[in-house]
Amino acid sequence: MPDNPPQPDAATLTEDVEDLKAHVRAITTQLGALAAGGPPPTSDRNDPNNTEGGEEDEGFPPFILLLDPPEYETELRALTEWVEGVLVPGYLAEASADARWCHLWPHHPVAVARLHALWLAWQELTAPETCGYTGPSTWHRDHYDPCIRELRASTGPFQGCTRGEHQVEHRLPTLVPRAWTHESAPKV
């Protein structure tokens, strides 16, 4: 057995790396579809041998604040279903001065951003086929606790909201990125 095995040339290594990238993209897309509850994608775009399509990660949803209507409204509706159907009844006790919550949270862009990130993590870390045994614990520790702590803090996005009074403008800077000002947020 030789002490120094032959080294592959740079072209072979580059080809192998690109092949591995394509496989990782395909597996990532399939896991994303499974985590979202859908069937694994079967298009040629997800074929590990198809390297066309560049470096796009089609299996991951875009961040909500980067979406334009109507995609923003569709994503916000799905987020609202999760927040109002899972998060609020299952996790959020009565709001207080020390633990604020605004029932009009979709009108607070910072809250929408944080809750969307929390929901994306929840989808990934609570799917039995992808998260393993520690996924839910990781979600609570790394995602839920910090997110809710920030949202409900006295300096958080709901700082001016109390029972019967809702304030959004107090948190918005004078220049807001266009993606943060969606006038068609649903009235809750």
Rank of each mutant, 00 (worst) to 15 (best):
P6M: 01
A11F: 12
T12C: 11
T12Q: 15
L13N: 08
T14K: 14
T14G: 12
V17K: 09
V17L: 14
V17Q: 10
V17C: 05
L20N: 02
L20W: 09
K21C: 14
A22R: 07
H23N: 08
V24G: 07
R25H: 07
A26H: 01
A26F: 03
T28H: 11
Q30F: 09
L31K: 13
L31W: 13
L31D: 09
L31Y: 11
G32Y: 07
A33Q: 07
L34N: 14
L34G: 15
L34I: 14
L34T: 12
A35Y: 02
A36G: 06
G37A: 02
G37V: 01
G38C: 01
P39E: 13
P41L: 01
T42W: 10
T42Q: 15
S43K: 05
S43M: 00
D47N: 15
D47K: 05
N50C: 03
N50E: 01
N50H: 08
E52K: 08
G53V: 04
G54V: 03
G54T: 05
G54Q: 06
E55T: 13
E55F: 15
E56P: 04
E56G: 06
E56Y: 10
D57V: 15
D57R: 14
E58I: 11
F60G: 00
F63H: 11
F63Q: 12
I64N: 05
L67H: 09
D68N: 15
D68E: 15
P69I: 03
P69R: 13
P70A: 05
T74N: 10
T74M: 13
T74W: 03
L76E: 06
L76H: 09
R77G: 05
A78M: 08
L79Q: 03
L79P: 00
E81A: 15
W82Q: 05
W82M: 00
W82V: 01
V83S: 02
E84L: 04
E84T: 06
G85D: 11
V86D: 13
V86P: 02
L87A: 00
L87F: 12
V88Y: 04
P89A: 05
G90C: 02
Y91P: 01
L92F: 10
A93E: 08
E94N: 09
E94A: 09
A95S: 12
A95R: 15
S96I: 00
A97F: 04
D98H: 10
A99H: 13
R100E: 00
R100Y: 04
R100Q: 07
W101P: 09
W101C: 01
C102M: 00
H103E: 07
L104K: 08
